[in-house]
């Protein structure tokens, strides 16, 4: 998976495959991060907006 693994060789298939896998992970990861950050912001904003929440 990584170039420091034993007997590593570089070739195109690796780029395509790992690229696709990485892309999928990135999309999901980014989406998840976005949701969490936005939710934190939402929560904080909500707290500031209404004082009846303690």
């Amino acid at each position: 998976m990584f170039p420091f693994a034993y007997e590593w060789t570089w070739y195109l298939g690796q780029y395509l495959f790992m690229g696709a896998a990485g892309f999928a992970i990135s999309v999901v990861g980014a989406g998840l991060t976005f949701c969490i950050i936005k939710s934190i912001i939402d929560t904080v904003q909500e707290d500031e907006g209404s004082s009846d929440h303690h």
Binding site: V27, G31, F34, C35, I36, S39, I40, D42, T43, E46
Partner: peptide, 25 residues
């Protein structure tokens, strides 16, 4: 819990992104 409330809402919002990735995979 408000945070989770927002989280579920936000995740629903961009569910299409996850779903698309899922479909691809």
């Amino acid at each position: 819990i408000r945070f989770f409330h927002h989280l579920s809402h936000n995740m629903h919002e961009i569910m299409a992104v996850f779903a698309a990735t899922g479909v691809f995979l």
